[in-house]
Design a protein around this nucleic acid. Sequence first.
DNA 1: AGATAGTTGAAAATTATCTTAAGTTAAGCT
DNA 2: AGCTTAACTTAAGATAATTTTCAACTATCT
Lengths: 151, 151
Amino acid sequence: MDNNHDAGQDSQKILEEFKKICESFGIKLTYQRLEIYRILLEAKDHPSAEDIFSRVQKKVPTISLDTVYRALATFEKFGLVRKFYSLDEKARFDPNVFPHFHLVCIKCHKITDFQWPEVEKKSLPSVAREWGEIKERYLELRGVCKDCLKK
Amino acid sequence: MDNNHDAGQDSQKILEEFKKICESFGIKLTYQRLEIYRILLEAKDHPSAEDIFSRVQKKVPTISLDTVYRALATFEKFGLVRKFYSLDEKARFDPNVFPHFHLVCIKCHKITDFQWPEVEKKSLPSVAREWGEIKERYLELRGVCKDCLKK
DNA sequence: AGATAGTTGAAAATTATCTTAAGTTAAGCT
DNA sequence: AGCTTAACTTAAGATAATTTTCAACTATCT
């Protein structure tokens, strides 16, 4: 009961938030985009387009994979999501657009967010400053996660 | 003249080195592998499989792209090269297997090696230590390189 | 030199992603 | 509330990166 109620509240909040965002950017608010965005916000595992597609399909059975790709591209264009590549050729999508880094398991490919303020803020080495204008620090710590260590 | 002579010496060295490596790992030494490896050692730009293919083709016109893919996979398996993904779904290959980081231009996608010992050696944050066993630090500084800034 | 296991090249299969074309819908206007 | 229009969605097919299959070949060991 409580869960349902909370879920309802969350959905409402998400919908409102999303509407605002779409309005402010002039993105047309469609059912499929809303559901894709909702799935993304819920996802904590940095899903691929295919992952997102199969999750959204449960809610919107007629949706096509192309729509997912297009919606994600649109979201990325407006800074609503971050697209990145890690250990394989599949793009991953991250609804967390604030600076943060990733812990990547080389066994199960699970990706977890983490912060490392010292690296985030450390002043750049001179080679980097001379190379050009740095806009972003992309850091992955790769290894074997606890779950996979147990096996 | 001098250049030719030096190139000859280099090739000789590379060949000897590569032979040793192949022997020690039990990799069969073929002409195509040798040329692929040579191109890789010469390359400073983190080429894709396709890039490597078109360079090797000049020397070995009958080589196929599949062979390049297979050779690179073999090299990677034995730790002779590093495979990684950056801004797009194309794998890049790096003959430098020692710890180092990358400067990545978001305009021209050029990738340059650099060192940042302070980050390389800094002790991991506790979240990371609790997450599992970290094996590698993968860092990219992304921005616009000097050449692209001029345009 | 001959056997054998690993390697190559060609072609086709797979996987990820994008494009095109035609019908559909959200958003603004009335 | 209905009309218009540009943007959106779907389906199908196109493209790009990578992998697999299989028959022919070759490096290495004997």
